[in-house]
Design a protein around this nucleic acid. Structure first.
Lengths: 243, 243
DNA sequence: ACAAAAGTGTTGCAAATACACCCATGA
DNA sequence: TCATGGGTGTATTTGCAACACTTTTGT
């Protein structure tokens, strides 16, 4: 760091959240409708400015998670995505946003206790395809978050963060299929997942059923890096059908 | 983003650079000696504050690259690492640092034209092991940068950024061996690398030699994501010798 | 001729796929 | 007893590490 005689410019720092979850086998992101200008009424990521100059970035992310989504950060996966600082991204002046990615298990239904106007889960497909328009550069941030989730499913135990505390192997498979957008063979998936040491651990011989044979239940294991990794099958060779 | 009656606190934003290169088959990072307080005289990452409120983060990173390391950003790989914003990381007040990772080919020798005091290439081993002490939280940032480089070698064409414009396959192998800290079989590496479509492209049948058979030369290919990826061998099972 | 580095062929093991099959339960 | 989803066995394919071997240069 070099020092110079001039004063460096002070900027505003916001923290925005990309909260992903699985609903009806599709990946969804939590969006709020903005109550004030700029971009009033438009959809945006939940977030807000640093509250006081002693607040850490991660602390602020956890606070927003609680305030805007009524989610308990202690139970969620939460990691930093990156900083977004294009000069003209916010008409109020120089605002740099530090984005965080959170993964939530499928919640009962609507997001309760939200103090933002109209929070809702939106399918990410629409956002990625540009059909769902977002304020600021938030669509790009969502795209980065989804891409991060897709790639981390391969090499980390992130998938368990989409599940409730106890889950069956086929529920875990649904996570992979929804996030990657592929179909997997349940039988091979079953053994593959069990073959990764520390990924999942048997959780009581308890079992609930939905019509067939009851499934064994598991909970997230101690491992966070998958070894061997679960490899994503390459999409079926887009030939003339593409685009 | 929620609006509230209070003023959000303004903070200072710095951009710091983790510039990695290969020297004598070892991974090195560029460090400068700080000329002013705080941490005067200590080693730190090159970087500095945003220069004016209209300067973009990436623009600032490119400027620092030029000013502090005399490197041309257009020829380098440059990507954002993340934001570091622990409240007490800088004694001057609230400073958030956005770190960037740059990869440079092995340069002729010393870093020329630097306006910082005492810029030098330091082996990353010492930094990672804590033997080389850095100012602020810069040692942690270096560790994150090295980890990012290690993991991106597997799935992206990042390795070519460590090489000159034209390189032989064995030079590319040296990059992988140095960054990963492993030994690879040259014969299998040779074919593996050639098997990845778009990774490297033949560059003139030109050839220079160092005693044996001349090598074919290549340049970076169009692909940035490696398919199939180059997988890193797991380290030789640390048994009782570990720690 | 020999050393040194580049490049090729071949083989055997191990992981991943595909899929036939058996198990446990509700209706 | 049949439909539904859970779980297991196994043959075939594929990927990859190991290593013998050939090629092309400098000295």
């Amino acid at each position: 760091m070099r020092e110079e005689p001039w004063e460096p410019p002070a900027v505003l720092v916001a923290v925005d959240l990309v909260i992903l979850t699985l609903r009806a086998s599709a990946l969804h992101v939590l969006l709020v409708q903005r109550g004030v200008e700029p971009h009033q009424g438009e959809l945006a990521l939940p977030g807000g400015f640093l509250q006081h100059s002693g607040e850490g970035l991660l602390t602020a992310a956890r606070r927003e998670l609680r305030e805007e989504a009524d989610l308990d950060a202690a139970r969620l996966h939460l990691e930093q995505l990156g900083a977004y600082g294009t000069p003209d991204r916010d008409s109020r002046g120089r605002v740099i946003s530090v984005a965080y990615l959170a993964i939530a298990p499928g919640l009962p239904e609507p997001v309760a206790g939200t103090d933002a106007v109209g929070a809702c889960w939106m399918p990410v497909d629409g956002v990625l395809a540009g059909r769902t328009r977002l304020a600021f550069d938030h669509a790009a941030i969502v795209a980065d978050g989804v891409e991060r989730a897709r790639s981390k499913l391969e090499s980390s135990a992130l998938a368990t963060a989409f599940c409730a505390e106890r889950f069956s192997i086929s529920e875990l498979q649904l996570v992979y299929e929804a996030v990657w957008g592929v179909r997997l063979d349940p039988r091979n998936f079953y053994r593959k997942v069990q073959g990764v040491r520390g990924f999942i651990a048997a959780a009581g011989s308890d079992r609930r059923t939905t019509g067939g044979r009851p499934a064994r239940l598991f909970r997230a294991g101690p491992t966070t890096v998958l070894n061997p990794p679960l490899t994503r099958p390459d999409p079926p060779q887009a030939s003339e059908e593409s685009r």
